[in-house]
Amino acid sequence: MIAPTGKGSSPTTSGPQCQAEVDPLAAVRAPGDPPWDVYLTGTVFLDIVFTGLETAPVRGTESWARGMGSSPGGVANMATALARLGLRTSLAAAFGDDHYGEYCWDALEQGEHIDLSTSRTVPGWHSPVTVSMAYEGERTMVSHGHEPPPEAVAVAKTGVLDNPPRARAAVASLTPGEHAPWIAEAASRGTRVFADVGWDDTGAWDLAGLPDLEHCEAFLPNAEEAMRYTGAKSPRAAAHALTEHVPLAVVTLGAEGAYAVDRRTGETAEVPAIAVEALDPTGAGDVFVAGFVTGTLADWPLADRLAFAGLTAALSVQEFGGSLSAPGWSEIAAWWRKVQSVEAQDPTALQRYAFLETLLPKAAARPWPLRRAVPTIGFGRST
């Protein structure tokens, strides 16, 4: 097992003409490509994260946190994770016309260089807010939001009235019992759709209740979700069963790593997790998906994709917050240089990540460990 990871600072990404310090798709780009690498849609929250709590808040008492940060959350976690890995990302979302909405829009468009041309500001709508309290590697969250008006639902639920922009890939979060027409429309245009799923509160756990799964190239549930949907006795058996419904099944196994099956090639892969001391798991699942999408679009071997997704997720839990914790290439480079310098490192584990060597920035890695600056609404965007 590779030594625990640390913390780092994310690079600045830009729009279609200027990417992050690493373009993972450089080798596959060609004239006539879609303008965007990834498209996604959903609801943006303002996340306020309290950190440094010794224990969970106790009823009837006041708790003081040693740190606090603010950032766009919800679907913005996934969009930020994709953009920081160098993918040209387009997000369709509804934003409130309050200061929270303005802050989230600016942080995503100006700070992360995410395309918001298909997003809309909805007059008179209060931005949804989540307060997250991180302690002992766990989190407690409280959310608040008003019922969105029809125009907000149209953007967040149907993906700009079922007319998504051209993109290599799309990331969709499936909701049991709901149908999102934009997914089929995107797939019909050649967009490769990667899907995850939320907990089925109905208790049905019926794959027929995920009608858009048939349009997806890959499905990435966790072990519990995969077993409940398939009735399989193990996560690995569940992954194989899911390939009857989708070409590529990836099942995350928590501390054990991840397992994947590609029906088209017959290939399977399993990569163990990287041992880390988690500070905050918020957004780790989104970062895993972003890493896997990146590797898939770059045509990496299946095992490399799993390893990269697991690494980015491991780096993310070393930071507080959702989009705040999404790693970029400088974090990845710093981690790789650090683990190579550790004596008595398992050579087999190191070899698993050797594919990074040809991808990482050639400039000297920054000192290790680093902490990313945490932006707040009060001070505006960090520099």
Rank of each mutant, 00 (worst) to 15 (best):
K338W: 12
V339Y: 05
A344V: 10
A303M: 06
L356M: 06
A333E: 11
W329S: 10
P327C: 13
A309Y: 00
W329K: 11
L279G: 00
P369M: 07
G310P: 04
G321R: 01
L324Y: 06
Q340E: 12
V276P: 00
A273V: 03
Q340K: 14
V339P: 05
L370S: 13
V276I: 07
D304V: 04
A373T: 12
V293L: 07
F288I: 04
G295Y: 00
A344T: 14
E343C: 07
P327I: 10
W300K: 07
V293M: 04
E277L: 10
G310S: 14
L315W: 00
L311C: 04
L324I: 08
E343G: 12
D304N: 13
G380T: 11
V293H: 00
R366H: 14
W335T: 13
P327D: 05
F379A: 15
A303F: 05
G283C: 05
A334F: 01
V289P: 00
P272Y: 02
V374Q: 11
D286P: 00
T376P: 04
T376N: 08
E319L: 11
I332T: 08
G322Q: 03
V342F: 13
R305L: 08
E277G: 08
V317M: 01
V289K: 02
D286E: 05
W335A: 15
T348I: 11
F308W: 02
R337S: 13
T376H: 10
P301Q: 09
T296I: 09
T282A: 01
Q340W: 06
L359M: 15
A298I: 04
I332G: 00
E331V: 08
L356T: 09
T282R: 00
A333P: 03
S323F: 02
F355Q: 09
A354T: 12
A313I: 03
L279H: 01
F308A: 03
A344M: 10
P367E: 14
R371P: 09
A334P: 03
G321F: 00
R352S: 05
R371M: 11
D299P: 05
R305S: 13
E319K: 13
S330M: 12
D304I: 05
E319M: 12
W335M: 14
V271A: 07
S323I: 02
A275W: 07
L360D: 08
E277N: 10
A326D: 02
G285R: 08
V342G: 06
F292L: 14
Q345R: 08
D299E: 14
A333N: 11
